[in-house]
Design a protein around this nucleic acid. Structure first.
Length: 777
RNA sequence: GCGCCCGUAGCUCAGUGGUAGAGCGUUUCGUUGACAUCGAAAAGGCCAGAAGUUCGAUCCUUCUCGGGCGCACCA
């Protein structure tokens, strides 16, 4: 029994059916596109974390990319939109750890090997959730090319990149003061911190001058670190302290002698103008300490507890407990002057919000200066363009003040460094136990442990007193080149997640396997689809990810990874708050899709995307989208009636040859056989077509959609369609069908399901799919 | 401290150097061709405030206030 076309458009069955038809057509894979599709157009998706589920930002971003991809595909480009996921080192490790905790166990109980197995299991189970959700949104991704940053070949690419940097002398290993998360037990780069304003106290402490009754008062927010002070610094121009520079102070509690030094970096205006210097636990102090050759006392351990160096008073205590003890002791010594309320920013781990402890640690660093310079040049020259352009400033600000990148992490989930250590110490004994691979790091052990070092094959050691020897190698060396007989052990450290995702635009396309003699192998995916054209992403990873892809692309491919960077709006709640699952302020796009359908959801998202930094989310626009879809649906039903096919007829038999054809090129609008309102709608359509093309090409998606909405509803339906007369000529009916079908094409990138569905009902000479139909230029 | 975005109708937002628009909401009217998830119409805004440039500013400049954000500082 043929079904009547229902009065109301009901998206649900239609959308899933349409997506199935697309998938079966194979046209998401550029290899399957018809010969008309020649010039490549590539977008690689920002790989979502395997821990993630689709949020509004993803949904908006995917819609933007899908719009561009679908338009290009219709224009005849050989279009590739490449999907995949990121292993997301710390984030994933934390999520799986939490799950283990629920099950009453821990990663330490399991051990490294079992824990990593668990993560893989977890990934198999949940890791593709977000990709499935992207399908529900209608994303025309080439699923046959799905990649994961921990795929075997991707792992090879990461090792290759590390080796490349090593050979070039851009990598070094050094003990420096770095950002340490005591909960995640790993180093972090500067970009992996977030700052939070905290109301706390500024404590004033008196440091007595040796052999004198005078003292200097210093101000600090962290009195506990005074246990590791090795100097007090003042500004050289500060007249108050001019005579004191060079004198010796007696550090309270420990009663050690420490010098008064002068350093330009000290602000005269802050506090008392005198700074206690703790080179081990503050970045600025480390810098001052280095300039003045101050000793380094590590009083806080990697576990966040005070070390033996802190002395009996606090040994083994947590930082906060130690603070109380220290203040108490200072008061007893009459060294405590006062405390004041003070608000300042505290750095936290962006994955677990634990306050960061700066501390000296042996880590691997990537020299950034030259890499950054090339990344700067690509954008300065205009070879890469940000949209909106203002984001270039954020990019430049970071790159122009770049510091070396701490790339090693002490977590378990990730790309292990391809670094191999000789297991024999200098006395000739085999010392496997010195480098426990799967043993949890605890307390001070970590510092010892990460003091693994040594040099071989260009491996550079700076600042290291260790004499271990290592080599960098893609494969486990069969024989130790140092002692000749030990079983070499691989470094336990893994790489920063962003080190691997920096390779995404080319590692997903076949690098390094399809790359030889400085260029991609002819005919390879890498040759065809790299460089990509557009990258669309969120603003918070401009430097974390985008900048790093750019210098990586330049370094490994000798070419930029993309030309246009879209930094899309951030979707906030209606009152401008951050959408957050834990705060309950998040909107789940999947709920919207269930409620209104995918097309309406896409409509709602794009409708609100007008070039601002933020979108204040409002569901009413999704409802408006649903109504609009209904309007399109009914207008199409009406047109089908007008052109002489009853619904039943249409569903029973294919269109007659002499019916107006949807793929007819309509005659010029000055045709004498048409009415003035025909001419009017044709002219208005021409205008809309131009405007829409312009807006999409300049990434103004909201404007494009508004234009289409206005045209279709108010011009095509309200002023044209409402006034069609049955007595109108056949040519007028052709106009009716022509404008509908061309409008459907323009609408298709935005609301692909309904347009595809209606397209299939229109009379065609040949059945074609809208995703490969020609775009109205 | 430096910088970015924003402040236009009740709400969410467009917009232009010549005193303003959409969607939703509100009010009134309207079902003989598809759509009541509809059509026609209406009400509703000293375009945050101040000063300046200009013949003329919501639109340009500066400042102030308010909201959001980034970077730096964060002793």
């Amino acid at each position: 029994m043929p079904k009547e076309l229902e009065k109301q458009y009901n998206p649900h069955d239609i959308e899933s059916n349409i997506y199935r038809i697309w998938t079966e057509s194979g046209f998401f894979n550029p290899d399957n596109l018809p010969p008309r599709h020649t010039k490549p157009f590539t977008i690689v998706i920002p790989p979502p974390n395997i821990t993630g589920s689709l949020h509004m930002g993803h949904a908006l971003n995917a819609t933007i990319q899908d719009i561009l991809i679908r338009k290009r595909r219709m224009e005849g480009y050989k279009t590739l939109w490449l999907p995949g996921t990121d292993h997301a080192g710390i984030a994933t490790q934390n999520v799986v750890e939490k799950q283990l905790k629920k099950d009453g166990t821990s990663r330490h109980t399991l051990g490294k090997e079992k824990f990593i197995e668990k993560i893989w299991e977890w990934k198999e189970q949940y890791g593709n959730t977000i990709l499935e959700q992207l399908k529900k949104l209608g994303s025309s991704l080439d699923w046959s090319r799905t990649r994961f940053t921990m795929d075997d070949d991707y792992q090879e690419a990461v090792k290759e990149a590390f080796l490349h940097y090593h050979k070039k002398g851009l990598l070094y290993k050094a003990e420096k003061v770095i950002n340490w998360c005591t909960r995640c037990a790993t180093s972090l780069s500067d970009l992996e911190l977030e700052y939070e304003e905290v109301k706390s106290k500024l404590y004033y402490i008196k440091y007595p001058i040796k052999n004198s009754k005078d003292y200097i008062t210093v101000a600090t927010t962290r009195p506990e670190t005074m246990l590791g002070d090795t100097a007090v610094a003042v500004n050289p121009k500060d007249t108050r302290y001019k005579d004191m520079v060079g004198k010796t102070l007696i550090l309270p509690i420990h009663h050690r002698d420490i010098p008064i030094i002068a350093d330009e970096k000290v602000e005269k205006e802050f506090g008392t103008g005198a700074v206690k210097v703790t080179p081990a636990h503050d970045l600025l102090d480390a810098e001052i300490g280095e300039r003045h050759n101050l000793p380094i006392l590590k009083v806080i351990g990697p576990d966040g507890k005070m070390t033996t160096e802190a002395g009996a008073i606090c040994n083994g205590l947590k930082v906060n407990e130690c603070r109380k003890k220290v203040i108490e002791a200072l008061k007893q010594e009459h060294a405590f002057e006062k405390e004041e309320d003070y608000t300042h920013n505290v750095a936290r781990c962006h994955r677990c919000a634990t306050p960061i402890e700066p501390m000296p640690s042996m880590q691997w660093f990537l020299k950034m200066k030259d890499l950054a310079q090339r990344a700067i040049e690509e954008v300065e020259s205009g070879r890469i363009v940000f949209h909106p352009k203002r984001w270039e400033k954020v990019y430049f600000d970071w790159l122009k003040n770049i510091k070396d990148w701490t790339i090693s992490r002490q977590i378990w989930w990730g790309h292990q460094l391809p670094v191999w250590y000789c297991m024999q110490d200098q006395t000739g004994r085999i010392s496997n136990s010195q480098f426990p691979i799967s043993k949890p790091m605890s307390k001070n052990e970590n510092l010892k442990l990460s003091a693994e070092g040594g040099s071989a094959f260009g491996g550079k050691i700076e600042n290291s007193s260790a004499d271990e020897q290592f080599m960098v190698s893609l494969k486990k060396p069969e024989q130790c080149p140092f002692c000749g007989h030990c079983k070499m052990e691989q470094s336990a450290d893994v790489l920063d997640t962003w080190f691997s995702s920096a390779l995404w635009p080319f590692a997903t396309l076949g690098w390094p396997f399809d790359f030889a003699q400085g260029k991609p192998k002819p005919g390879s995916n890498l040759a065809t689809y790299y460089p990509t054209q557009v990258l669309s992403t969120a603003r918070d990873i401009v430097n974390l990810w985008v900048a790093r892809m750019i210098f990586s692309g330049m370094e490994f491919m000798g070419d930029k990874p993309f030309t246009d960077i879209i930094i899309h709006a951030t979707v906030l709640t209606k009152d401008g708050k951050r959408m957050s699952k834990s705060l309950g302020t998040g909107i789940d796009p999947m709920t919207l899709i269930e409620k209104y359908g995918s097309d309406a959801t896409r409509f709602g998202l794009i409708w609100q995307t007008m070039g601002n930094q933020d979108v204040h989310w409002s569901e009413e626009h999704v409802r408006a989208g649903k109504k609009f879809l209904n309007k399109i649906w009914n207008a199409s039903r009406f047109v089908l009636q007008q052109i002489g096919i009853s619904n039943e007829q249409f569903l029973i038999s294919p269109p007659e040859a002499d019916l107006p054809q949807a793929d007819n090129q309509f005659p010029k609008s000055n045709s004498q056989n048409i009415t003035s309102s025909d001419k009017n709608v044709l002219e208005r359509f021409e205008h809309t077509k131009k405007t829409v093309n312009m807006h999409i090409d300049t990434y103004e998606f909201g404007h494009a959609l508004h234009e289409l909405y206005d045209f279709f509803w108010h011009t095509y339906c309200d002023t044209y369609l409402e006034h069609i007369k049955t007595t109108d000529k056949e040519e007028s009916k052709k106009v009716l069908l022509y404008v509908l079908s061309e409008s459907l094409k323009l609408l298709h990138p935005f609301i692909p399901h309904i347009t595809e569905h209606i397209w299939a009902m229109l009379p065609h000479k040949d059945k074609k799919m809208l995703i490969i139909e020609e775009w109205p230029e």
